[in-house]
């Protein structure tokens, strides 16, 4: 039974793999799951920064935008291949996070929240301002679909598998980070920065590294988004998107990696259930959020682990 407890995620993985085969989803349905996957990548990165390192960001969509626009501009206007453009986006985002990380992350709490919010707003303003390059407020069109090794992922199902492969790699690498000496340093910073310093942790450096990794994930998500949509506009990357990511974190269970992933999946699929309430859709969404947050402060993943511990007998701590 302990095997089940340790490898429960394999079941989830299998479900993702066989769903298109058994469910034969419409392009609309697989599209929903593609969006969910993209948001999972964003949420997992933000969880590293917020849930583990304890640094709030209310502007994470900025790096989502950087990835999407780097991919979009380089492929639509300069003839780059999508994978090369994604690579450039990753390097660009990491560099941007490296340069802004130190000054921004030297701030704490509300000030950090304000600075990251401003960062998001600056990025969106720049996108709107550089109209010639980005298409401005009316958006950037004609972004080609993703190709790997000359194989175009125009088909929804192919893209579904591609995105979810990236999701698995992102979650696996995030788990590798948090379950390691590196992750321990992040948790120490989150707990008590001064004490962490007293044990040799260069806090500014480690905070910046976590920020960079979160930015890289967000940039990858941005590229995946741009090539799927074919058209991107500044609205997709505003502060509302950043706030939505925060909701996913708290709804799913912050500081658990799986929790925010679950939160992203849930929040992206929820409209599928609540759309039938038509005018009351937003109301129902809101009520569900409030109920989860009030009665299950550890989020959906907290509910999940509690259930799992009930079903599978507790193993010794």
């Amino acid at each position: 039974m302990n095997t089940l407890k340790r490898y429960w995620w394999l079941i989830l993985l299998a479900a993702i793999a066989v769903y298109p085969v058994i469910g034969k989803p419409s392009p609309y349905r697989s599209g929903l799951l593609i969006f969910a996957g993209i948001y999972i990548i964003l949420a997992v990165g933000l969880d590293l920064l917020m849930g583990y390192t304890g640094q709030i960001s209310v502007g994470h969509a900025a790096f989502f935008a950087v990835g999407a626009y780097t991919s979009g501009i380089l492929t639509a206007k300069y003839g780059f291949s999508p994978s090369a453009a994604m690579g450039v986006g990753v390097v660009f985002s990491a560099t941007l996070a490296f340069l802004t990380g130190r000054p921004v992350l030297a701030l704490k709490e509300y000030y950090l929240a304000m600075a990251t919010l401003a960062f998001n707003e600056i990025v969106v303003t720049l996108i709107i301002g550089f109209e010639g390059l980005t298409g401005g407020a009316s958006g950037l069109r004609d972004i080609p679909p993703f190709t790997i090794f000359g194989f175009s992922l125009l088909n929804h199902l192919h893209y579904y598998y591609f995105v979810w492969t990236v999701v698995v790699l992102v979650i696996a690498s995030a788990l590798a980070v948090v379950r390691s000496p590196f992750g321990r340093a992040l948790i120490a910073i989150h707990s008590d920065e001064q004490a962490a310093r007293s044990f040799g942790v260069n806090c500014a450096k480690y905070k910046t590294r976590a920020y960079m990794l979160a930015a890289v994930y967000a940039s990858i998500a941005g590229s995946l988004f741009a090539h799927y949509m074919g058209f991107i506009a500044p609205d997709d990357f505003g502060i509302l998107t950043s706030i939505n990511l925060l909701v996913m974190l708290f709804l799913g269970g912050i500081g658990t990696i799986f929790g925010p992933a679950l939160g992203a999946l849930f929040l992206k699929l929820l409209p599928e259930i609540t759309y039938q309430f038509q005018d009351y859709e937003l109301l129902i969404n809101g009520i569900i959020l409030i109920v989860v947050l009030v009665f299950f402060p550890r989020g959906l993943f907290g509910i999940f682990t509690a259930l799992r511990n009930k079903i599978v007998p507790r193993m010794g701590k």
């Binding site: 690498s173 590798a176 980070v177 000496p181 590196f182 340093a185 044990f199 040799g200 942790v201 990794l213």
Partner: peptide, 16 residues
């Protein structure tokens, strides 16, 4: 274990 941090100096690349 955190006490060993200064001897390990873990990097992001190595960790992943």
């Amino acid at each position: 274990l955190l006490g060993a941090h200064m001897h390990l100096k873990p990097t992001l690349f190595g960790t992943i």
